[in-house]
Design a binder for these strands. Structure first.
Lengths: 269, 269
DNA sequence: CGCTAGATTGAGGTCAATCAACGGGTGTGG
DNA sequence: CCACACCCGTTGATTGACCTCAATCTAGCG
């Protein structure tokens, strides 16, 4: 039934030797239990689902799955970064999201035709919890809490996609890059003006829907405006330097949102 | 708690006088019962949910809801076309989807902060079934079937968005327009070479992420290649004229997919 | 020390947006 | 029935944002 997948050769899929499936799921139980997927669930129920789960390790560049493959697992990242993308026949690819610790590749297995609609690739050494799709589907039938948790995850992802969508259609490259840096700043708990880029600049560029050269030029542009950039570290002259790139999604993560300290004073979109 | 919403004035929201809420939900029961939302549910359960539902009528141009408003209802289109979009402060808007009969605006009410992440506007006279979000949330807690149905809807929507995303980033305007026409062809049951555009050209252009002028020029381009276009009707010289714009999502709707008749012979992406 | 991958910089090209004018249906009022 | 206005769509000319290609630079690493 499955169509031949031209991507397989390209990415050297099926050649992954380090898929080291291990039985040490329990070692990660403390982390796993705190995942949104299992929120509000009984210990027994969680363990029932995890019985068939395995932990897989992917090297940098390894493919987790490819679009149009049979969707076999639901994945949760325990460590590292996974790139979610869609590639076309001419080799170009469009990066949909970058996923990291605690997040899951969930909606992918509820695809109507049972095939992954997207591809996933580790962009650095990553550890992933893999739960068979059949197990999830089985528990879904009886475990309402699980269904609601997944619904919540998928809806959240959907919303994030809407934002990404708006970014690409309505924003210039400078605005996209500025917003990206601001989001990094808001995610870093310690509120210094120091931001470290989480992965390759070329990858950031792809995620932001632009060419590496363009991203480089945009950073150059920021430098001229007083933002100091060295390698993968960005130093802000002050914490408000990027506030003009804020939007409603980022604002909700900002401690100064809806306070007099916010330079935008609620004029956000 | 609710922020002032500058869009309200712009769109004349709250001024909608024809929101004719009616108690004639039962008149639409035959249609409603066949909706994916209620698939596999008992008659009693469906009626329990519909007890508080109302049918609303929107004139062309009327706003159903605006982004950042409190998410109060889940909507299902019974008639007409609704535009789902995200607008920014400078008045530009990015059209995410066009929704029509049988489809729902579902994921919108599961937004984490309880606000609509997007706006919805009727682009022609439309009839909509509105179910209070509180009712849905209440039933979700106990009705597992409902949760699974919604999950399926949201996942489907999410996947559609992924496709839209890929279109905008990886395809040229010509490819996007060609694919759009092809999708219309595949959706029309009668397989003649005649396609009628479902709404304004300007709206189609916005949905395809281009300017009206650009869309017009693209149609011109098609005309030069033998496709006859008159007003809102497109005549194909033969049924395969647009096959080069096919992709895996459209292929699944094509009766000739995976048959020797398919001019692409499975070389699809 | 040289190799390589990632990043930068420069020059030129292109696709689609923008700005502006026009055409041709449709509806309205005289 | 015609004159006019209005809206939608088209067409043309120009601009500009971003891409592409190619050369160069830099840092890490064996």
């Amino acid at each position: 039934m499955r169509e031949t997948n031209p991507d397989e050769e390209k990415y050297g899929h099926k050649a992954i030797a380090n898929n080291q499936f291990q039985h040490d799921v329990c070692r990660y139980m403390p982390v796993i239990r705190t995942l949104p997927l299992f929120a509000g669930m009984q210990k027994a129920a969680i363990e029932g689902i995890l019985k068939c789960a395995r932990i897989a390790l992917y090297d940098k560049g390894a493919i987790v799955f490819l679009q149009n493959e049979q969707a076999s697992h639901l994945y949760i990242i325990l460590d590292g970064w996974i790139k979610i993308f869609k590639g076309n026949i001419s080799g170009e690819e469009s990066v949909l999201q970058m996923v990291t610790v605690g997040e899951s590749l969930a909606e992918t297995i509820f695809s109507s035709h049972g095939l992954y609609p997207i591809s996933a690739q580790a962009v650095e050494k990553s550890r992933v919890l893999a739960i068979p799709a059949s197990v999830i589907h089985e528990h879904l039938e009886t475990n309402n809490r699980l269904a609601l948790n997944i619904l919540s995850i998928v809806a959240g992802r959907s919303q994030h996609m809407i934002n990404q969508f708006e970014q690409l259609t309505l924003r210039t490259v400078t605005q996209r890059a500025g917003r990206f840096l601001l989001s990094l700043l808001l995610e870093s708990k310690k509120r210094t003006g120091k931001i470290t880029l989480p992965y390759d600049k070329a990858l950031i560029a792809a995620y932001l829907g632009m060419q590496p050269e363009t991203f480089s030029r945009v950073l150059q542009h920021f430098k001229e405006r007083g933002i100091d950039i060295e390698r993968d570290v960005v130093f802000l002259p002050d914490l408000f330097a990027l506030c003009s790139y804020c939007d409603i999604e980022l604002a909700s993560k900002c401690p100064r949102h809806n306070t007099p300290e916010c330079p935008l004073m609620g004029n956000i979109n």
